[in-house]
């Protein structure tokens, strides 16, 4: 099959960017979207032109590095799928595809389709952990965790930190990401000791980074490759509220 790509090109954060058009010829439906970009890049390099810069690493949907907005939808719109797991069988021959980077003030473009998502790291650094040092921890079975609680914490912990929630949100809000992390740890008995502090500090950092606010549109949940539920945002709202009312 043949595809036409309209790709955002931008040399560096300061440069002005724009769309360029490329033809992906003779690609096959079994190929992944990124493998198709690899083919385009191969041709560009062989022709002495700069390849399209994009992030990817594990290429199996878990590292969270890949981050393309494909035809207006982060990760391309297949349910529970990252860009790297998206295969060309979901496109048709002759289709024109627009490829853009994540767009948010907190995720500035680094080059072409690569953005800087270190804001997420700083949010975790503000409180996305349990304050335990290595060593001296009790036996793993000393803290029973009800299966339902462990499962729910795991649902939240499945977040891969890709930032698609921010990219799709009309407000560029990072609530789903932050809520997933707050919920993962606040649900578990191990995380209860610093539950209030965690919610307050992580939200503070999130606001500081310049993400937008949640208006509960639910589009984050719809594009999340790990299908993380909007209900975790409610959980964070509750935890933050309780912590605030306590005057912490």
């Amino acid at each position: 099959m043949n595809l036409t790509l309209k790709v955002w090109r931008q040399k560096n954060p300061r440069a002005a960017g724009g769309f360029e058009t490329y033809e992906a010829k003779g690609v096959t439906p079994e190929m992944s979207f990124l493998e198709m970009l690899d083919v385009v890049n191969e041709e560009l390099i062989a022709g002495g032109r700069d390849p399209i810069a994009f992030d990817s690493d594990c290429r199996e949907g878990i590292c969270g590095m890949c981050s393309l907005v494909i035809n207006g939808i982060p990760h391309g719109g297949q349910p529970g799928t990252t860009t790297c797991e998206l295969h060309l069988r979901h496109f048709h021959d002759g289709q024109t595809i627009t490829v853009e980077p994540w767009r948010a003030k907190a995720f500035p473009v680094v080059r072409d389709l690569i953005t800087n998502r270190s804001a997420f790291d700083r949010i975790i650094q503000a409180g996305g952990f349990v304050s335990v040092n290595t060593g001296g921890t009790p036996d793993g079975n000393a803290i029973p965790v009800p299966k339902t609680t462990a499962d729910r914490a795991m649902d939240a912990a499945a977040c891969i930190g890709c930032g698609a929630c921010v990219a799709v949100c009309k407000n560029a809000s990072a609530m789903l990401f932050v809520a997933a992390k707050v919920s993962h740890l606040n649900l578990l008995p191990q995380g209860k000791a610093e539950k209030d502090r965690r919610a307050l500090n992580m939200v503070k950092q999130m606001d500081h980074e310049g993400f937008g606010n949640c208006t509960v549109t639910g589009s984050c949940e719809a594009v999340c490759p790990k299908e993380i539920s909007l209900s975790f945002i409610a959980k964070m709202n509750r935890d933050y509220g309780v912590a605030t009312l306590k005057g912490q």
């Binding site: 955002w8 207006g72 853009e100 799709v168 719809a222 594009v223």
Partner: peptide, 9 residues
């Protein structure tokens, strides 16, 4: 975005 689909909302 040049192309934007408000999925899921």
């Amino acid at each position: 975005y040049a192309a934007y689909e408000p999925v899921g909302s």
